[in-house]
């Protein structure tokens, strides 16, 4: 199973980004292979609106079944839910800590968006 983490850095020790749609990058971690890959979300940073939708499309296409991020807005949540991707909110400082929390079952699935839609 693959999990997408929002981040501004380039590996597991990088900070977990609190934003979903406007996170600079995604780290997609494959629990089965214990391997990870980086996905760029830069083209989304300047979107006036719909950034969450495009980001959701990106992680769904990458095959992620879960997203771990700080906050998730309503449009992105709708798209992720429709694609069967579970969202987990986390305030962990780094991707690695968030991953450890996930493995240990310390993260609960979000039941909805936890922030308002943003344009910027």
């Amino acid at each position: 199973m693959k999990i997408a983490f929002t981040t501004s850095g380039d590996g597991p020790d990088a900070p977990l980004d609190s934003r979903f749609g406007r996170a600079p990058k995604f780290l997609v971690y494959d629990l089965d292979g214990d391997a990870w890959q980086m996905l760029d979300n830069a083209q989304n940073l300047g979107a006036a609106q719909g950034a969450g939708i495009q980001a959701a499309e990106t992680v769904v296409r990458a095959g992620a079944r879960a997203v771990v991020t700080g906050h998730c807005g309503p449009k992105a949540f709708r798209v992720l839910a429709a694609a069967g991707v579970t969202v987990y909110n986390s305030a962990a400082p780094t991707v690695a800590t968030a991953l450890a929390d996930f493995r240990a079952g310390r993260l609960a699935p979000a039941r909805g968006a936890d922030v308002e839609g943003h344009w910027a």
């Binding site: 609106q49 719909g50 939708i53 495009q54 959701a56 499309e57 769904v60 449009k75 709708r78 798209v79 429709a82 694609a83």
Partner: peptide, 18 residues
């Protein structure tokens, strides 16, 4: 062009405001 309709092999989601 505006991601106002999105589909992943299911009935699409529509975002009328976009």
């Amino acid at each position: 062009a505006w991601h106002a309709i999105v589909s992943f092999g299911t009935t699409p989601l529509v975002f009328p405001e976009l």
